[in-house]
């Protein structure tokens, strides 16, 4: 086995391996949202966060702007408090911004969609978004649907 050919082959193999790694990193896992340099934390209170997990995406208009960093239960109000890290470059979120828990696709994961409001005052780090729409819980939906049907039929 000539040394030259061997070194070439090994080099090519190592390069192929690193290319595979890069492919997996970029094309497969979409590694582009860099570690938050200068992100600020914002909270949102929900009635129901069923299915939402830490590290879920936070989007505005479908664009990724942050990640959920914590989910806990508020001991006094017994509501769910979600803490999010918003990228520092996103400024001007007003105090009447709404947050909704949405589902990506039918089987998809839960994420938070923010909709900017129209107030003058800006959201400060640590503020709480109160205008929220909770997760759609399938059982409640079905229950509502069924009771609607029931009402309809009793009306007739």
């Amino acid at each position: 086995m000539k040394t030259r050919t061997l070194e070439l082959a090994v080099g090519a193999f190592l390069i192929a391996g690193f290319l595979a790694f890069a492919f997996l990193a970029i094309k497969v896992s979409g590694l582009s949202f860099a570690a938050p340099e200068g992100s600020y934390l914002v909270n949102a209170r929900f009635e129901n966060v069923s299915g939402l997990t830490v590290r879920a995406k936070v989007t505005i208009g479908g664009v990724l702007v942050g990640r959920v960093t914590g989910i806990r239960l508020d001991p006094e109000t017994h509501a769910a408090m979600v803490e999010m890290a918003i990228d520092g470059s996103v400024k001007g979120l007003t105090t009447d911004t709404t947050a909704a828990i949405l589902t990506s696709g039918l089987l998809g994961e839960k994420y938070i969609g923010l909709e900017p409001g129209a107030e003058d005052t800006e959201l400060q780090p640590g503020d709480i978004i109160r205008d929220t729409q909770s997760a759609l819980v399938l059982e409640n939906l079905i229950g509502k649907f069924l009771s609607n049907q029931l009402n309809k039929s009793t009306e007739e």
Binding site: V28, S29, G30, S104, G108
Partner: peptide
Amino acid sequence: YWSAMQNSVEFGEDI
């Protein structure tokens, strides 16, 4: 095919 993949595959956790 690619966008759903990128959305759900976490670099740190999965890869």
